[in-house]
Amino acid sequence: MKNRILAALTLGLLLSACGQSREEELKEQHSKGAELVEDKAAMAKGLGDALQKDGKDAARSITQGVGGVMKGMAQGVDFVEADFKIQLSESAKSKQLKAERAVLQEKNADGQKGLKVYVLSEQAFNGKLQLRALDEKGNELGRSQKVEQTLAADDANYVDFRFDAATPLSRVAQFVIYSTQ
């Protein structure tokens, strides 16, 4: 048993004598760290040199691209196809009008919100139309201004209905078109 312990101690001493000292390990780690920093510094310097050389052109290109995206987004916000229910009152049905789709519009110069509705007529129509906004319980949230409209028989047109800026269009569950004289 003593021989085994003595052999294990001798083996341990030999292994530690063959390995690096703590000081040598620290020097090696320091050397690796210095190389890593030199590599990263060289990469940063190269990046800086490239930006100085081509940076203005790259920035101009990026700015033009972002400008194009923003312009497209602004146009998209102005004309968002709305998924609203558009009903017809009895007065509009009696004039043989139909409504198929709507396009939500941002506020105009007077701060009025709008909805353009594609209105079709089977027979000639000349009169005023009004769009009323209702919530999910059928309560009225607002009325558009009355719009003078002339449609020939078998005709169609987008009609621009404008609401007061205070009308909460985000709460609207359905719109109803009325024919008023």
Rank of each mutant, 00 (worst) to 15 (best):
G76Y: 04
R171Y: 02
V147M: 05
E140Y: 02
A133N: 08
L134F: 15
A153N: 09
R162H: 05
A41H: 07
L15E: 10
G72P: 02
Q52H: 13
G142W: 15
A102H: 01
K128G: 03
K71T: 12
G72V: 06
P168V: 11
N126E: 15
S16H: 14
F163C: 03
G12C: 13
I62D: 02
N108T: 07
R22L: 13
G68W: 07
L131M: 07
F163E: 03
N108M: 05
A173L: 02
D164P: 02
S16W: 08
S16D: 11
R162E: 03
N157W: 00
R22H: 10
R4V: 13
D83F: 11
A17V: 10
L120Q: 08
A99Y: 12
G19Q: 10
A109E: 10
S31P: 00
S179M: 02
K95V: 04
D49R: 11
A102V: 13
A153V: 04
L26P: 00
A82V: 05
E136R: 14
D154E: 13
L97R: 08
K107Q: 13
T10W: 03
L47K: 07
G46T: 07
E38F: 04
V176H: 02
A59S: 08
K98Q: 12
T167C: 12
G111M: 04
G48E: 07
Q52Y: 12
M1N: 10
E81R: 15
F175G: 03
P168Q: 11
Q149R: 11
D78M: 06
G68K: 14
R4T: 13
F163L: 03
G67T: 12
A102P: 01
K95G: 01
A92Q: 07
V66S: 06
S61V: 10
M43L: 05
A173W: 04
K85V: 10
G127L: 01
N139M: 08
K53W: 01
A59N: 06
G138Y: 09
E106W: 01
Y158K: 08
T180H: 06
K71N: 07
K116Y: 04
K93D: 04
A173E: 14
Y158E: 12
D78G: 09
A41Y: 09
G114Q: 09
Q52E: 14
M1D: 11
K85I: 09
L47F: 11
I177L: 13
Q29V: 06
D49Q: 14
L97I: 10
Q130H: 01
D155M: 02
K53S: 13
A42H: 03
G55N: 08
A44Q: 11
A17N: 12
N3I: 12
N139I: 03
T63C: 06
T167K: 09
Y178W: 14
M43N: 05
E106M: 09
T150D: 07
A82T: 08
D57L: 12
A41V: 10
L11K: 14
K85A: 09
L14N: 11
Y158L: 15
S91A: 14
P168I: 13
E140C: 04
F125P: 05
Q149D: 03
A58W: 15
K27I: 04
A124R: 06
T10E: 14
R101L: 12
D135L: 07
L47R: 08
A109D: 11
A44N: 11
D110K: 10
V176F: 03
D39T: 09
S94F: 01
Q52L: 15
K40H: 06
D164V: 00
L47W: 05
K137W: 05
G68D: 13
F84Q: 05
